[in-house]
Design a protein around this nucleic acid. Structure first.
Lengths: 150, 150
DNA sequence: GCCAACTGTTGGCGTCGCCAACGAATTCGT
DNA sequence: ACGAATTCGTTGGCGACGCCAACAGTTGGC
């Protein structure tokens, strides 16, 4: 018999806040990905931004979602192929594409909204509603601090 | 003048707990990566595991760190080249490699310990010590819940 | 002795975030 | 008004991270 290798993570890692944060994020992210099914987080983010901003340039959408221009292009390509989004040259500024959600796009977005909300429930099930609020608040403050530093 | 595009994220995303979690994790992860400099999280994790477990097989190290066997191989290759770790065939079980930290490895690990601790300070600076404890606790519970579900 | 399981290794895949370069178009500075 | 700087979309690429499949060598159970 070989010595049971003690699957426990090393002490330094087990208690490391940054590791706890990134690993938990990965777990939750996995749930989200499953929930989104055929879509990725980029797709959902862009559709949400398009819905709330109305007709907007790709740059505006990317900035709103905090994603790189090149990634916006790729994700919008996907959404265009699926007919969820339309790109049109902005006549007022011919560098820009005006992006709008189609009817199918709005329907898909609502569907995803439901799936995403359902995932949030499952993701934080060990926490009470109060605790979820506390967690969100703490994360928001850390997030904001690092975001402000550009 | 073009309409200021309002860089604010869409409402649905701004308040989405899973997004808050993953984005904050990414910010902190970036700090960690900077702190580790020439090393990656895999390297630090494996060295920590090797230090705490003593001579161990790659499988044991990988299991302890929660990483895939193939990723263990790659990371140990790096560490071996840098002379921080030694691989030796286990005479008792010739399938296994016994992995041990070298003197240089121990020194490097201590150096990294310091850098990592310093990063933890900076990462969560907007939180009081109490709040950091609360955050760690909440994350640990969520993490444990999803980990137990295998 | 045989079959199942484990070990290390190679090679590959997908997501995510990021960066560089480019041409076309627009805005700014003077 | 005109050249310089900037913006926009696009393409192509990179690194980190997590994961999976296959394979040969080895070991264990039965």
């Amino acid at each position: 018999m070989t010595t049971r290798p003690a699957a426990q993570p090393p002490e330094r890692l087990r208690l490391l806040p940054s590791r706890l944060l990134t690993r938990t994020a990965a777990q939750v992210q996995r749930l989200v990905a499953e929930g989104l099914g055929e879509y990725r987080t980029h797709h959902y983010a862009l559709m949400a931004a398009a819905a709330e901003l109305g007709p907007a340039s790709q740059a505006a959408l990317g900035q709103a979602c905090g994603m790189d221009r090149s990634d916006v292009v790729a994700a919008l390509d996907d959404l265009t192929v699926r007919g969820l989004v339309r790109r049109a040259l902005d006549p007022a500024d011919r560098r820009r594409n005006t992006v709008v959600l189609t009817g199918d796009g709005e329907r898909a977005l609502h569907e995803l909204d439901a799936r995403v909300q359902e995932v949030q429930q499952r993701a934080f099930v060990p926490l009470t509603p109060d605790e979820r609020g506390v967690l969100a608040d703490l994360l928001a403050r850390v997030n904001r601090h690092h975001a402000e530093a550009e």
